[in-house]
Amino acid sequence: MRRIVTALLLLAVAAAPAVAKEKVYGKGVAAHEATPVSTVLAHPDQFVGKTLVVEGTVVGVCAHRGCWLSLASDVEGQTLRVKVEDGVIIFPKEIVGEKVRAEGVFKANRVEDTAKKCDATRDGEPEVQCTTVYELFASGAVCDWK
């Protein structure tokens, strides 16, 4: 009986998550040099469709499903949204303030001012006012937890 209890206790201790400094989300990040967020945002159309690595401090996170991050740029006041597939990667709320590297495809989403997707063919209707929202659709990220 004593041996069983000891074994179970050792198992419980071994199962406790190790205090890891670096946490990998999704497919992680390849060892490429990061493109500064300010460079991407200065000429966003040049990067659309390309796979990028970006890094920065997390200044915002989705409160509901942890499905996006807001990464601070190297230029004050600028941020880049990093989106992930719902349920596949879930960023915890505690990640705000941590440094993150993310890799993914840079996308341009054309959205109406009412936040609906733009429809290319709208016969007979007034011209739809659209804006472009740029984001990185990430397949992976790495966080250096403090």
Binding site: A72, E76, K99
Partner: peptide, 11 residues
């Protein structure tokens, strides 16, 4: 408490 980071979000 320890401060993780500061960020100038705007002017």
């Amino acid at each position: 408490e320890p401060v993780k980071e500061t960020w100038r979000a705007g002017r």
